[in-house]
Simulated scan of single mutants.
Amino acid sequence: MWALFIMKNVKKQRPVNLDLATIRFPVTAIASILHRVSGVITFVAVGILLWLLGLSLSSPEGFLVASSIMDSFIVKFIFWGILTALAYHVVGGIRHMLMDFGYLEETLEAGKRTANIGFGITVVLSILAGVLVW
């Protein structure tokens, strides 16, 4: 019975848009996707940062090696990206917690407004992280 129902519904000709370039995501969806991506980046970065910390604390020579690694422009750029991802993830997490605790409305308008505010705060924190790294 269920197989017949599924087969009947699968054969319907539905409009399918698989061209992702034509899909316009709302700002709330972009904020949600970026929050997940920043979480993955932060998770991976913890291993890299712990390795660098361990190297710097291992010996005076290890500190010099870690210090020379951090002098590279590419490494500074990656470190800045990690700090930016962490800042966005923290800002997005605070936004979600404020919504969960009832301090912010759970409406579409409030979601759009807080997502844009979160983006703005992250830009400011990213600039401050860039000043800190360089």
Rank of each mutant, 00 (worst) to 15 (best):
1 M>Y: 10
1 M>A: 15
2 W>G: 15
3 A>V: 13
4 L>A: 15
5 F>D: 08
6 I>A: 11
7 M>G: 13
7 M>I: 11
8 K>G: 00
10 V>Y: 12
11 K>S: 15
14 R>P: 01
14 R>S: 07
15 P>Y: 03
16 V>I: 15
16 V>E: 04
17 N>Q: 12
17 N>D: 09
19 D>H: 09
20 L>S: 09
22 T>L: 07
22 T>A: 09
24 R>K: 15
24 R>Q: 13
25 F>H: 13
27 V>K: 11
29 A>S: 14
29 A>R: 13
30 I>V: 15
31 A>Y: 04
31 A>R: 04
32 S>D: 10
32 S>K: 11
33 I>S: 08
33 I>Q: 09
33 I>G: 04
34 L>M: 14
37 V>K: 11
38 S>R: 01
38 S>Q: 03
39 G>D: 02
40 V>K: 07
41 I>E: 00
41 I>M: 08
41 I>W: 02
42 T>Y: 02
42 T>M: 11
42 T>V: 12
46 V>M: 13
49 L>N: 12
50 L>T: 14
51 W>P: 03
52 L>Q: 14
52 L>H: 10
53 L>P: 07
53 L>W: 13
54 G>T: 11
55 L>Q: 11
55 L>M: 14
56 S>Y: 05
56 S>N: 12
56 S>Q: 15
56 S>E: 11
57 L>Q: 14
59 S>H: 08
60 P>L: 02
60 P>I: 03
62 G>I: 07
62 G>T: 05
64 L>W: 12
65 V>G: 02
65 V>F: 09
65 V>W: 06
66 A>C: 11
68 S>F: 07
68 S>K: 12
68 S>G: 08
69 I>V: 15
70 M>Y: 15
73 F>K: 13
73 F>D: 13
74 I>E: 14
74 I>H: 09
77 F>K: 15
77 F>P: 00
78 I>M: 06
80 W>N: 02
80 W>K: 05
80 W>A: 01
83 L>G: 04
84 T>C: 09
84 T>Q: 03
86 L>W: 06
89 H>Q: 10
89 H>E: 03
90 V>A: 05
92 G>P: 00
95 R>I: 02
95 R>V: 00
96 H>L: 06
96 H>N: 05
96 H>I: 03
97 M>F: 10
97 M>R: 09
97 M>H: 09
98 L>I: 03
99 M>W: 00
100 D>E: 08
101 F>H: 08
102 G>Y: 05
102 G>I: 03
102 G>K: 07
104 L>S: 01
104 L>G: 00
106 E>V: 09
107 T>F: 01
108 L>V: 09
108 L>R: 14
110 A>M: 07
110 A>H: 01
111 G>L: 00
113 R>G: 00
116 N>H: 06
117 I>M: 06
118 G>V: 00
119 F>R: 08
119 F>L: 12
120 G>Y: 02
121 I>H: 03
122 T>G: 04
124 V>M: 06
125 L>K: 06
125 L>I: 02
125 L>R: 10
126 S>H: 04
127 I>H: 06
127 I>N: 05
129 A>L: 05
129 A>P: 06
129 A>D: 02
130 G>E: 01
130 G>I: 03
132 L>R: 13
132 L>I: 10
133 V>W: 02
134 W>R: 12
134 W>H: 10
134 W>F: 15
